[in-house]
Design a protein around this nucleic acid. Structure first.
Length: 201
DNA sequence: AAGATATTTGCGAGCAAGCC
DNA sequence: GGCTTGCTCGCAAATATCTT
């Protein structure tokens, strides 16, 4: 790698486009934001800096954005994107500094069966392995909440998707660091695959 | 390889319940 | 009472997968 050349290129890109990769940081393409909110990221960054968004809580910023005429959902997106650009938060980081990661999977099986695979300890063991967890609560074929063996918490949601299909969404919250979040994401990715295989077979 | 379709992802809101 | 934590849900873009 040619470090000098790289940073040189990056620097030049900044000068020429003055955009850097805000879009990548924010996780939302520049054209999209521009189309929906009337401003692209560099403009938003300027606008919000001027507003003093850096020192304000999310809610206030989102409200301000909304008051400018941006629709609900986009107000959130813009606010979160800004915070990421400014380094106030990273992907997966929640209020209070904890992290979360989500994983979901569509499986060609009715919700009941899917729910069962989680609710039934024996079935669960077949794809999840022997994990020490505590089921905090379980609501019919809709959702389930679990306390993991490391005190983190796992939220699981089950949703029907047409006739015989359904999908499960796993959210692992309260992770202490990004490394943990990454690890859990990988973990769930594998387990969910295993689950799909098991049920689909 | 382009286009169409399906799946996946991250996030906050709002209400309920629990705790100081 | 007021604050924190838990529970559920919907949204729209991004990414992956399948067609042709």
């Amino acid at each position: 790698m040619d470090k000098t050349g790289e940073s040189y290129t990056a620097a030049r890109r900044q000068v020429l486009n003055k955009k850097i990769d805000y879009a990548a940081l924010a996780g939302m393409a520049d054209e999209k934001v521009k189309a929906k909110t009337g401003r692209d990221w560099s403009e938003w960054t300027r606008t919000l800096d001027a507003f003093g968004a850096k020192d304000k809580p999310h809610r206030d910023v989102a409200e301000h954005v909304h008051s400018i005429g941006v629709p609900d959902w986009w107000a959130q997106t813009v606010t979160v994107g800004y915070e990421r650009i400014r380094g106030l938060r990273a992907i997966g980081q929640r209020r209070g500094g904890s992290w979360e990661t989500t994983k979901s999977k569509t499986i060609a099986v009715p919700v009941d069966k899917l729910f069962d695979a989680f609710a039934n300890a024996r079935t669960r063991k077949r794809w999840l392995g022997d994990v020490k967890l505590k089921v905090r609560s379980a609501t019919k074929p809709k959702a389930m909440h679990i306390t993991w063996d490391d005190q983190t918490s796992v939220d699981i949601g089950f949703f029907p998707k047409g006739e015989a299909k359904s999908y499960v969404a796993v959210a692992h919250v309260k992770l202490p660091s990004k490394a943990d979040a990454d690890r859990k994401k990988q973990f769930w990715s594998e387990k969910l695959d295993a689950l799909a295989k098991l049920l689909t077979k």
